[in-house]
Amino acid sequence: MVLAALLLVLVLSITVLGQFRHFAAQQQLDDAFRKQLAEAVAPVSEGDVDDILLPDGVPVAIIDMPSIGVREVIVEGTDSETTQSGPGHRRDTVLPGQVGLSIVMGRAAGYGAPFGRIQELTPGTEFTVITGQGENTYEVIGLRYAGDPMPPSVKAGESRLVLITARGLPFVPTGLVRVDARLVSDPQPSGVRQTRFATLPAADKEMAGDTSMVWALVFALQFLIVVEIAAVWSFRRIGPARTWIVFVPLTLVACLWVAGEVVRLLPNLM
C-alpha cells in the first residue's frame, strides 16, 4: 500500500500537482518580473543591479508565442527543479535579444508542458521575448532533430535564440527537438556572463537530472520508513481507527517529500 501510494503521489506530482505548481509559480514570477520592468531593475546579465550572481529560478524574460498559445516567464537556470517553474535560460549563453546565441530549455510534458507544442512552429513564424532591454521579435528559421545539420554560425552583431525540449511520447523522451530563431528587431548589447560551457553544471545540460540533492532523498526515505514503522506499531497497540487518522496524513506528507526529491533526479525537459 505504501509503495502504491508513493507511485501514485509521484505521478500526481509530475502531472496534476505539477500543473498547479507551475501555474502558481508563473503567476508569482510574472508579478515579480513586471515589477522589475517597471522599476527598470530587470536583469540584463548574469548578475543583478548590484552585480550579485542571479540565483536559479529568478525571472529574466517573458516569451510570447501566440501561434501555439504559449506565454511563459523564463527563469534563470535549467536544472530539473528550476524548469518546474517555467522555461529556463541556460546560464552560459546571452539573454534573448542580445548579440550572440541564447538558449532556452522547457519541459515537454510535465509541470505545465510550456514547450510541449514548439514542434508546431514553422519557418517564418514570429514571436516576441521581453527582457529588461525591451521587446525583441524573433522569426523561426527551422526545427532540428538529432542528426540534422546545424544552421550557419551566428555572425558578428547577430542574435539567435534556440528553444529546446524533449521529443517522444509524454514522459517517455526519446531525444531532443530544437527550434532555431533569428532576431529581426534591433539586437541589444550582451551582458556579462560568468558561466561558460566548460563550467556549466552537468545538471543544467539537456535531459539531465540533478543528483546534488540525493542526500535529501535519503532523508525523505528514512522519514517515510520511520512513519510506516510507527504506523505498524500503532495499528497493533492502539487500533486501526486512530492509526488511520494520524498516519494517513503523515504518510502522504512523506510520500510527497520523497516524490519531490525523485523528480529532481528525472530529466529536466521531461
Rank of each mutant, 00 (worst) to 15 (best):
T93W: 02
V73E: 03
V258Y: 04
I130F: 04
V258P: 04
V70G: 10
I62A: 08
W233H: 08
Q98W: 00
G106C: 12
C255Q: 08
G110E: 09
L265A: 02
M213S: 15
A216H: 12
Q28S: 06
G97E: 01
T251A: 03
C255G: 08
V258K: 06
A38Y: 02
V214W: 12
E81G: 07
R236N: 09
I238A: 09
L224K: 10
S85F: 08
R90T: 08
E228K: 13
R196E: 07
E135R: 08
E206K: 11
L176N: 06
L250A: 10
R196S: 06
A198I: 13
V179I: 04
S80T: 05
R264P: 05
L54E: 10
T128E: 05
C255V: 12
S13E: 00
E39H: 14
L6A: 05
G100N: 04
V41F: 07
F247R: 03
Q188W: 07
L265T: 01
S67Y: 10
G97R: 01
R34C: 11
D56E: 12
A259H: 04
D48H: 12
G134I: 01
V184M: 11
L183K: 03
R264H: 05
V258R: 04
Q119H: 07
G116M: 03
P59A: 11
L224S: 10
A181L: 10
G69S: 00
G116A: 06
T199H: 09
R117G: 09
F219C: 15
Q28T: 06
P267N: 02
I63T: 15
D148C: 15
I74P: 07
V262S: 06
E228N: 14
W257I: 11
V94F: 00
D50I: 10
G77F: 07
L7H: 07
V162E: 00
A208F: 05
M207K: 14
G106L: 11
E228C: 13
V246Q: 11
L7Q: 09
V9A: 05
L217A: 01
L163N: 03
S234Y: 01
E135F: 08
D30V: 01
